[in-house]
Design a binder for these strands. Structure first.
Lengths: 337, 337
DNA sequence: ATAGCAATGGAGAACGTTCTACATCCCGTC
DNA sequence: GACGGGATGTAGAACGTTCTCCATTGCTAT
């Protein structure tokens, strides 16, 4: 019933606790014979190191990933990437759900840190940069999905400027002029301007201007959720001149947009074209077949994992890595009729 | 840079470490004045308890949830339920991804236990009952989605018998006779017979027999994934007499089925009806509008959370709770033509 | 021989908590 | 004025590791 400890192993193998610890840590000063005896004892007793005790001494074996929400179909790709990258390092990944708003996000982050993780990957966190830097002073941090420049933590993001341009150019190329955007604005005021959602919206506006469509630029500020997309379309359709194409900042929002358009009796892509962002598996579903921007979540996850391991390994210089997205045209976008 | 410990707080508040600990634990023997001083010091120094140190003394503040996979749209409902139920108890929830096969599942479970969680919720685990009982000897366990009877852990599941019957009756009521089923069989041999996937398949067969359709019963054994659904339809369409209705054991598989049917040039529901299971948000999407069985994931999650708290609180008697599902008809099922 | 050194093993002090004993103080009672 | 007893506070031993020293060996080179 009671836990098997190093002391038990030591007793069973007729060596000291220190010796067992050395074997466990692959430390210097272990004869092959002792190593064998200890390993045998470990096996026989079914010993498992007590992670909390190790943590108390400063050792870690877990990495944390903060996800804003479990429903976004893009996030599993990121997690898969991180998991792939750290496979074989002895680290395990645990996930925590950030929830709505910076307050619950902060709770979730601290829950992770309290678990004495060796490092954390924050996916599109809402907290201000100063908060993140405070956290990064405690534990290695990689931020995913924000274009932050920080000397304290690493940032990995896709080039949302390029992504937004790809979409606008694609739609404009199909003859659309009234191209609207569904953007994400969090309930909390003071959302960081480096967050991907902010960048996508700004890049959309710039692209519109650059293509001479500045006067048609029109943004519905809702959220990157199914509901948000639905609401966004509601707003856009009530304009004097409704758009003929909609660029939703996330696949999930695009899905909501599709639903709303159908309810409004509009055909996609015949009446209105729709494009998303993330190229999640949802977009690829034959029933949806959504034109979307691929930002290779797995690659981003892998990159984040690698950077985190590097930081844990001692790197202090800050990295900032941008990944270039590509457009995946599918059946929700077509030439304007 | 260095961590603020109880000793620092004690020094600052001019009391003993024991006193601070007492305040922290709300223990007996604390004068109001001392409590105030200590709380002030805690606040001033920004003290946060070191969870690992507590864990070493046997205290826990985290509950673990094991998910087989992050992509299944039903699971977030479960997590939400657990989170809701434990809100305000001071526990935090961390999630671990089981992955494919019992080996990686076992790794994930142990990763959770190693974090010294106070208890774990296992969602549709593949491990044999004896393994789960061994785990339950270490830490409180609630198993979700298996009809296990175990004296060592609690089980929460929806009544898959009823669910399967609802679907078969619904389809039969629409005049279908050749109703096929897409089932989940894991790569690993020796999958527990109490797992929901096994029960659904058996209940489907029984329902078919009961309605006098026994000779038309036809199961494609693939997996509860989009891919599995796709493959399942491929199999079923190659039969001499293909089905006119398909009951997929999970929404995700139903989605795959829809895609495959479309590729085969068959219209849903005109040529073939399709029903899923879970009533996840995916099924509700206007673009999909999938007939599905609702098993109220949030309620199941809440129940699991409650049982776990009870077990942590000392209950040793085993609970086994069944939740009755309902059918949600949508646009993918219609009368046979 | 003997100093010197590499190789091996162990003692014991942390790490930050909890919690059981115990010490002290203050009052009221007989 | 001694005694009992509640209220309050503290000392110090765990918990299971890691890791720095130190002790012991057995060689090698002088």
């Amino acid at each position: 019933m009671t836990r098997v400890t190093i002391a038990d192993v030591a007793l069973h193998a007729q060596v000291s606790r220190s010796a067992v610890s050395k074997v466990l840590r692959d430390a210097y000063g272990v004869s092959p014979s002792m190593r064998a005896r200890v390993l045998a004892a470990i096996d026989e007793l079914g010993y498992r190191p007590h992670v909390a005790a190790r943590a108390l001494r400063g050792h870690t074996s877990t990495l944390g990933v903060l996800l804003p929400d479990l429903r976004n179909p893009f996030f599993p790709d990121l997690v898969d990437g991180v998991v792939e990258e750290i496979a074989g390092t002895g680290y395990e990944v645990v996930i925590s759900q950030g929830g709505r708003g910076p307050a619950s996000e902060s709770r979730a982050i601290h829950a992770l840190i309290d678990q004495s993780v060796g490092g954390i990957v924050l996916v599109a966190p809402l907290s201000p940069q100063s908060d993140l830097e405070a956290i990064a002073a405690t534990v290695p941090v990689v931020v995913l999905g924000r274009h932050d420049r920080s000397p304290r933590y690493d940032a990995v993001f896709d080039d949302d400027e390029v992504g937004a341009e790809l979409v606008v150019e694609h739609l404009a190329g199909l003859g659309h002029r009234r191209i609207a955007h569904i953007a994400h604005r969090d309930s909390s005021r003071g959302e960081p301007a480096t967050l991907l959602q902010a960048i996508r919206a700004r890049a959309y506006e710039r692209a519109m201007v650059r293509l001479g469509l500045g006067e048609h630029a029109d943004i519905a500020w809702t959220t990157y959720t199914e509901e948000g997309g639905h609401k966004g379309v509601g707003e856009l359709l009530s304009r004097p001149e409704p758009p003929t194409a909609i660029f939703a900042g996330a696949d999930l929002a695009a899905i909501g947009a599709l639903a709303a358009l159908r309810e409004a009796g509009l055909a996609v892509p015949d009446d209105v074209s729709v494009a998303g962002y993330d190229n999640s598996w949802l977009a690829a579903l034959a029933h949806i077949s959504l034109t979307s921007v691929d930002q290779s979540g797995v690659t981003m996850g892998r990159t984040a994992g690698r950077l985190l391991l590097e930081r844990i390994g001692g790197r202090t210089a800050s990295a900032r890595i941008s990944i270039t997205p590509t457009l995946v045209p599918r059946r929700t976008t077509a030439a304007v009729s």
